[in-house]
Amino acid sequence: MTKHIETEIDSWEIGGKTLQSRLLIGSALYPSPANMEEAIKISGAQIVTVSLRRQAAGEGGGNAFWEIIRSLGIDVLPNTAGSHSAKEAITTAQMAREVFGTNWIKLEVIGDQYTLQPDPFETVKAAEVLIKEGFEVFPYTTDDLVVAKRLADVGCKIIMPWGSMIGSGKGLMNPDNLLAIRKQFPNLQLVVDAGIGKPSHATQAMELGYDGVLLNSAIALAQDPVKMADAFRTAVEAGRLGYEAGMMQEREFASPSTPTVGTPFWHQFS
């Protein structure tokens, strides 16, 4: 490995916490709990998403999964996955706050079962209620600028537009839309959530100036999730460094990089 230049340790703030990693990672779909644990560790992520589901009678309150997550000592971000209305999402968030002991909530209200596209109307409605109840809302939304505005209007300090459909791995469908949201809200924390399939997608999101990237399937469904977690860690770092370094402007025409003065065998065309 080539040693990179000495730079200050990159840190950012989200939900009242100062973090060094800009990668938020999911905890689902791994081949095994041990594999999940190792992938999360290697990723360097300091936020891991979790969820709530029906518990069968006779089971103890604790479970092996939750014990592993707690042992990692990183922040958990519970989601409201499966909610189809503001009311369901609000109730799930309240239940998550009690179980996980955090006021953070990844707000997901699904509006279409085929695309898992979020319902913007119910999402805004739920966000407004939850913020009044003291939650730090991480809303999963589309890349629609007006929806982002509405979420900001009701008090969201974090907005998480999708790259593309959940679990699709298609990457950033509309980078121009994502850029428009970034430009409109320079002071909000923006995280691309969902649709990331390759490390290069994460790099692209970070190059757009996004504060972070949230993903799950791209790591968990890789042939080697632990190695892929490492790849995403470096991809996110690369994208952030690239953004901070300031990228060159695109040009319409070629421009030689080798000096033209003293070009051998050159002669003036008549």
Binding site: G26, S27, A28, L29, Y30, M36, T49, V50, S51, L52, R53, R54, Q55, E59, G61, N63, F65, W66, I69, P78, N79, A81, T92, M95, V99, F100, I166, G167, N216, S217
Partner: peptide, 10 residues
């Protein structure tokens, strides 16, 4: 009644 417990999530 719904009784919910922690599980993996994305």
């Amino acid at each position: 009644i719904e009784i919910l417990a922690p599980v993996q999530g994305g």
